[in-house]
Amino acid sequence: MSNIDVDSILELSCLSLTDERKQEFSVQIEKVLDYMDVLNNVKKVPDPSFEWPIHKDVVGREDVPESFEHPLVKENAPEYKSGGFSVPKILS
């Protein structure tokens, strides 16, 4: 990963790092990515039934959001105004 790559990944991750940390993380992550080359040793095409060996018929449920009524929702919010979460301006 070059520095340019790191910058674009940081943008996608909504993270920011100092230049020193970027350099340090690049080296560490490159080492991890190098290790991933071992995946190319696996030539076998898996039986599709093992993509999810346990849950073959997952059934979703209706989501009924109720939690906004809980007093802790307001207490946990960094800023809560007029029944909503307040954030800084989108455009400064």
């Binding site: 993270l15 929702v73 960094p78 400064s92």
Partner: peptide, 21 residues
């Protein structure tokens, strides 16, 4: 936005999210 610590010194939403994280 909804819970946890926030960097209150940020001037925009994007900056707030990035610096909070």
């Amino acid at each position: 936005v909804r819970y946890g610590n926030r960097n209150t010194a940020a001037n925009s939403l994007k900056e707030m999210i990035q610096t909070t994280r």
